[in-house]
Design a protein around this nucleic acid. Structure first.
Length: 202
DNA sequence: CCCGTGATTTAT
DNA sequence: TAAATCACGGGG
């Protein structure tokens, strides 16, 4: 019996590390689409220049990032892409983990149909916008509870976090260069990925 | 390297 | 009201 991953109450760095190696599952039109999480980023809330909740900012877009740990925060960006975050901590914290890449494990044929143009398995889920397209994740899933939703959830494949030697760290992707950012927020090693896994984003 | 895309945020 | 920004992806 496979259990759900439910330990999202911790800080986003802890949750980020624990999410690596677990399985994201989407059930859409009666089909199961799933993949192993291989790359994530932590966003630390009011103090974090790169977080949507920086300085306590609130808007219709980011409202669900203030829900309690275990909810989904899905937003639309660059006129084309959806990104999926796992909200962490307690209600009002505004902290989350961005899911950046998956290794596809189930429903792969449907994922290719969802992403016309993708040729190789590696093209399917190797980026935050790619994986939401492959798994048919959009704003209709914003705010769902990943602990009890039947449409979107996370299965716990391993009880302990992945071994430290398999987890690599780096600065987060796609942020403004440091000179425009007071402090070192753009440089902090808040991206975590499975060392050597070919499905990590490029 | 460049550029489309459009919601959101920030400047005027 | 207008302009800039953006946790991106795809194509050279």
């Amino acid at each position: 019996m496979i259990e759900r991953f439910t330990s999202m109450d911790s800080d986003p760095v802890t949750v980020a590390r624990r999410l690596l190696g677990q399985r994201l599952v989407r059930v859409h039109n009666g089909k199961r689409l799933a993949g192993t999480i291989v790359e994530v980023e932590a966003y630390l809330g009011a103090q974090d220049r790169a977080a949507h909740t920086y300085a306590g900012h609130r808007s219709p877009r980011n409202e669900s990032m203030y829900l309690s740990g275990g909810h989904a925060y899905v937003y639309f960006t660059y006129g084309a892409h959806f990104c999926l975050n796992v909200v962490c901590g307690s209600e009002h914290d505004g902290v989350a983990v961005l899911i950046r890449a998956l290794e596809p494990t189930q429903g792969i044929e449907q994922m290719f149909r969802n992403r016309p143009g993708a040729k190789r398995l590696k093209d399917l889920c190797s980026g935050p916008g790619k994986l939401t397209q492959a798994l048919a994740i959009d704003r209709s899933l914003d705010g769902v509870n990943l602990r009890n939703s039947r449409a979107l959830f996370i299965e716990q494949l391993r009880h302990r976090a992945m071994s430290r030697s398999l987890i690599a760290q780096s600065k987060r992707i796609g942020l403004n260069p440091d000179e425009t950012w007071p402090g070192d927020w753009a440089q902090r090693p808040l991206r975590f990925f499975v060392e050597g896994n070919p499905h990590v984003s490029h």
